[in-house]
Nucleic acid binder design. Structure first.
Lengths: 240, 240, 240, 240
DNA sequence: GATGAATGAGCCTTCATTCAT
DNA sequence: GATGAATGAAGGCTCATTCAT
């Protein structure tokens, strides 16, 4: 077998694997995990049922494969990129949020259900004590938020009494719940604006009002000083 | 049939219905909806399989029955009571949060999964016409939060730029996500304290900063007074 | 439900169970356990596949059901009867052998394979350490041979140095192996005569040669009589 | 290709074939024919699945290959050797029995199951035309016993009324059944002694009691003669 | 009203076998 | 010759639901 042939062969394999993952993702997202039979997945991917099991030993592993790809190819890379290119804490959180929501909303607009349902239910039961590969993936992804927060606190952008865990829940809980309710009503229409509406009060709760960084703060400072001068002036005047 | 007999008969029916609901709730909560067969439910309830279908028509309706009871007998009554007895906005939110979380956590500590999974997945598909009775139940329950917020704004406890919908997501999204992650790690242990940890930053983001607690507020006050004096002075000068 | 109806109902159930067992027995015997699908069994029994599993939780238990019935309704009762009505040891062994062989040979002439294969293979693996119900059945059945031998020894019909276990192997091993080879060649034709041909040398090896049937026995008789005469003669002489 | 290269190539092929046979034998013996997939065999042999089929065409033929090798390399050669080196009939039977039993018991101590199951079940069905190569192998192997018996009869060691076929069943049936029951209880422990315990009564049933070999016989003869003399004497006396 | 036997479609998975490389 | 990806039929089994009793 020539190198060329081998490469082509490998490409075909990967293409097939991708095809199965795509089909399964779409079907799981559309109809749910339990309502999607392996037969349907095979048919949708244009392969035989046996092939599905050839690539992913079981329906469960197929699901894990989907999530794995999702984390490794979508969630994590962009999250890392965001932290590398944006330094402003507020901007970082906003970008992370947008990324998270839009990623979940892609893929038939319901990829998110996957996580909710599958992770929430089946894995939590089946892999209760063992450290499933999913936990690692999730941990690394969540780490990006943790880092943004940590650095935000260091810079004085965020309050310094924020605990990591509640913060994650605040952030992801709000976003995913909000994504669900919004999409239930309007689909992806106006999703970005809605995320901003969610982030606004969140930011208020997290940001450090002592920080001079924001325009309001700077303005306040100037006002403060101006005020002091005014007060002194007016006092002098009154006395005179 | 005497009235007595009729009453006793009705009571027996209701007792049976309750028994089935109890069994199903526990099983669904423990093993999940799909992993619980109607046979198991019947066995756990001490009735025949046919009887389950006599009372609930289908497994789906049985699930709806569970949720219906949950809203009507657990969630809603206590929420209403909270609003009736607590007037303080902060206290109200806290009580609603505690109530929500502990209700979900009860029933084998996993009733919550029910909602997440079933509502999130199957009903959203089956009842896509958006007319499911569940929507009404949910709307009425969410209404309690809405009311607490509305009145909080009216009293000046909360910012007046808060929109209803994002706020719901902020509140319930954070709580349910937090409940899930917390219970995954520690079960119900320390759940109350954790809810407080979640609420703290949330409150910061929602409450009205007119309160004299924050520096900005104090400054504003001073500015306001300075302004008044300046205005008075300038008026005097103009007159002179 | 009247008593009559209940009885009729029970009868129908038992008839169905019997029907499934019959169909499965015939198919297993004809094609072997692994080559017979539960679908085929259901079809042959005229019921749905689900019904088969309704009665016998699994294919394995169905097999156990067959064997159980075989032991309880065929093998054991007649074996007990044989020991109750025949006292002669040789006759007992012959009757037990005939009964064993013809029972195995009935039921599509291959019921025996069932035991060989299924017991020999699957149960020995699956139920290796647990005392399967099958072991009890088999023990009770084998007990009949044990009793015939024990009593045969007590009466002096059999050698008194016979151990139980090797004897069982000698008896059942020979019969089943012989049954198999004979049926492979001639079917059930001349089976009885063949069993006799098997028993003949077996009996030689087991029976007590003191018995008057054998030359030694005859000799002994003669010796005894001769002795008596000698004794009488010698007595006479002593008196004279 | 040089002769050397060709030879080496052939050796490699044979080594491969042997490897597959070894792996399959062990797996079949351990887990049974049906529970062993060709995939497992290939993996255990360190070759690809396709290769297995290259060498053996089908799983069935692979099994035949195992049995063929077993007869040709294990059973037959040693049986022939036994008859060539041992002349004493009793010793021959004992050696053949030991050889048979220990051969079956080798190979993970369960090779025997192979025969029982596979031969008993599937081949009898698949090769119903009675032309399977297995029959020839088996016939030639059984021939060794036949020869030992024939010559035993000629020498007067065995009764002369023994038929060939029942005798085979007596011999192999007892041994295999006994092997199975013994191994079920004690594994290979004490197997030799048990075979002796099986052979003892068997021998009694087969050996020629006319043979002057045993003490009892000798004594009986003397007694017989003594008896005759006594009888004659006593008769004479009575007449006188 | 209550029962539970009966259903049969459908599920996930396995497997011997084929064939292009 | 050797590979192993691909196949698809078949397997045992489950389950919500129906209906005669």
């Amino acid at each position: 077998m020539t190198d060329n042939a081998r490469r082509r062969s490998r490409e075909r394999l990967e293409e097939r694997e991708r095809g199965i993952l795509d089909a399964a993702t779409k079907l799981f997202a559309t109809a749910g995990f339990h309502a999607t039979s392996t037969r349907k997945i095979a048919a949708a991917a244009g392969v035989s049922e046996g092939t599905v099991f050839h690539y992913f030993g079981s329906k469960n592993e197929l699901m894990l494969g989907i999530l794995d790809r999702f984390y490794n190819e979508v969630l994590n890379p962009r999250a890392a990129e965001i932290l590398d290119t944006i330094m402003d804490t507020r901007g970082r959180l906003r970008a992370l949020a947008m990324h998270h929501v839009s990623s979940l909303a892609a893929d038939n607009a319901l990829m998110m259900r996957l996580l909710q349902v599958y992770v929430g239910v089946d894995l939590e039961i089946l892999g209760q004590d063992k450290q499933s590969p999913l936990r690692d993936l999730n941990r690394s992804y969540v780490g990006h938020l943790d880092r943004a927060v940590r650095e935000g606190v260091e810079r004085g952008d965020l309050r310094n009494n924020l605990e990591t865990r509640p913060l994650r829940d605040l952030f992801f809980g709000t976003l995913e719940y909000g994504l669900r309710t919004h999409m239930y009503r309007h689909g992806t229409e106006g999703l970005d604006a809605y995320v901003d509406a969610l982030l606004q009060p969140l930011w208020e709760g997290l940001s450090n009002s002592d920080s001079p960084a924001t325009p309001t703060e700077l303005l306040t400072e100037r006002l403060e000083k101006a005020c002091e001068r005014l007060e002194r002036t007016s006092e002098r005047w009154e006395k005179s």
